[in-house]
Design a protein around this nucleic acid. Structure first.
Lengths: 343, 343
DNA sequence: CTGTTAGCGCTTTCAA
DNA sequence: TTGAAAGCGCTAACAG
């Protein structure tokens, strides 16, 4: 147990000033019912004595911690960090801090994190479910206890009582593939992520829909659903894929920035010219696409805004009447295709 | 104020079982002084009633929150995120959570964050000072209050009472530049970051030392200290630099991964062949260097380990005797040069 | 405008 | 082995 010097507390100020603790508390709260002169005296004394309020005591007594719990599937995914940055920005502007936990792509960790938040340390929770998350009772149970929840990104099921923030994955990938088709591409490969993840299912659907709508032949061989949860394996999975195909793709639509970059890397190494022989599109647009040579065309996802929006919805819930039972908003944010040199 | 269903508390369990709150508390604590049979009864009842301890009340009463405060200069720097991941991993394994704040490269924010942590919400603090941070009284003041602090990365001054974790920036860049020199490079450019930042000063020193030691001419023209705190500007700063020089570099040593990538991008666009005409080295090795074509040689910084180490030192401080006054450890972690296609 | 007092939910002596 | 009761530091209802 670390040594802590005894902290100055309200009582100390009160005693020194010969007034009550309550008055000190009110004064520091800038409560107008306190005489200005006392208020000033209190402030000065507090300052002089180096008073620092005890947030824990405040929280216990007020029932509010001003902390927002955030659970993301992983840290090493720029998308999630960017969302966190957005959450943090909005939260701080509204006097909240954020406590981030990673579920490490595991449903079990997700549950544990949620439960640990249930111990009263956060006022509300923002969560992006893992690909493993099939049931939502753990989330519903939290909501039932009256703890506000907002979900974002990978949502498999509507959870009554929780707001959702997402993008239209389906439409976003449809548009991207449509763009490739209109450019005259015929052999369009698809590189997606874990099949269990809703966002990847939707992006795949968008791809299929576009292909069908324009009567472009879909080659099973040109479709890859990456299974990797790890950067390293993604790399070899994609390399193996391209080495194994017999049809030469003239375009590749990929479901993350990283897949897009790895695809470009692999294709360049195999001697393809980008974009002359093959076009590549990434998904996310979290910065790297711009640096790569050639720079990568991307579906831009408004990650920072997504974070801000989730925080906004959560904080709104804090201030809402107690309509826990039927409360639910679904917000779809707009994506756009950012054209660069890879297409 | 969000609606919260009344939570089950110790008192409820106590009443139902006709025992005292104290016994319930002890039972749940697995205190051996409680009869096994009561302990079991308590556990079962708690479970059945859906009891969840109130962490805030526990903290108030125990004086421990089991939360570690982390202050980093920015979120959108993979290095810091990777360090946080390391901190998180170690912390969680030891039953701590982390509360991350960004100082957004501002000394003022750094101070504010620190002060807000001083309100008793964290048991200790891990901090990486911004480039603006010249004085350390804000940190010392925290330490004086008995709150354990560990610093990492950009440390300008020894702060009595705080452990430090860093790498040997000087030596790391010396070795990298030495490597270039031994490869026969003569016109070695240097791209560093904000001059105010200690780590960049050291990396610059390493460059200079290596150049001098091997009697390689240092061309002022080939030296750039980026001033940007923002990704976008870094890009144009580096582009402008290379467009402005009259001496053709045959190697570029850069002080971050991003500078390295931007350098490669710029040089490739200008028609340079990498590594035939010019070699490039990055600093950090946080993943992107591997994907780029050509892949980038990097000074690999053990970021995750750095995070783990800081967390370890902090938690050690929690358990140490109260030798606040003269306590100080400086840990230097090893870097290595990871060779890839850009050299 | 200010003081008294009763909590907030849990831990921890001190007694029994 | 258990219970009673005094805090932890602050808030807020109530009284004056």
């Amino acid at each position: 147990m670390p040594f802590k010097k005894r902290r100055v507390k309200l009582e100390d100020i009160a005693r020194k000033l010969n007034i009550s603790i309550a008055t000190v508390s009110r004064a520091l709260d800038e409560n107008p019912r306190v005489k200005v002169s006392t208020r000033i005296k209190v402030f000065e004394t507090a300052q002089a004595m180096g008073y620092m309020p005890n947030q824990i005591a405040k929280s216990l007594s007020s029932g509010k911690t001003n902390i927002i719990g955030v659970i993301i599937p992983r840290y090493d995914e720029p998308f999630f960090i960017e969302v966190c940055r957005g959450i943090d920005r909005y939260a701080r502007n509204h006097n909240y801090k954020i406590l981030i936990s990673s579920s490490r792509n595991s449903f079990e960790f997700e549950r544990e994190n949620l439960i640990s938040f249930e111990r009263g340390i956060v006022d509300g929770i923002i969560l992006s479910p893992t690909h493993e998350t099939e049931t939502f009772t753990h989330i519903k149970s939290i909501i039932n206890k009256g703890i506000p929840v907002v979900l974002f990104d990978n949502i498999k099921e509507e959870v009554a009582g929780a707001d959702h923030v997402l993008i239209d994955d389906d439409k976003a990938s449809f548009s991207a593939v449509e763009f490739l088709i209109k450019k005259g591409k015929k052999q369009i490969a698809f590189i997606g992520g874990i099949k269990e993840k809703r966002v990847f299912q939707d992006r795949f659907k968008g791809y299929l829909d576009a292909m069908k709508k324009y009567n472009v032949t879909i080659h099973e061989e040109l479709i890859l659903h990456c299974n990797s949860l790890d950067r390293e394996y993604e790399d070899s999975e994609i390399q193996d894929f391209f080495k194994g195909i017999t049809i030469k793709p003239d375009a590749v639509f990929t479901c993350t920035d990283n897949y897009g970059l790895l695809t470009m890397k692999t294709l360049l190494k195999m001697g393809y010219k980008i974009p002359e022989e093959v076009a590549v599109i990434g998904f996310g647009d979290l910065g790297l696409g711009e640096v790569f040579v050639p720079s990568m065309t991307c579906v831009a996802q408004p990650s920072f805004e997504m974070g801000q929006k989730t925080a906004e919805l959560l904080i709104d819930q804090f201030n809402e009447p107690n309509d826990i039972d039927h409360h639910k908003k679904v917000i779809k944010l707009k994506t756009k295709l950012v054209l660069r040199d890879s297409t």
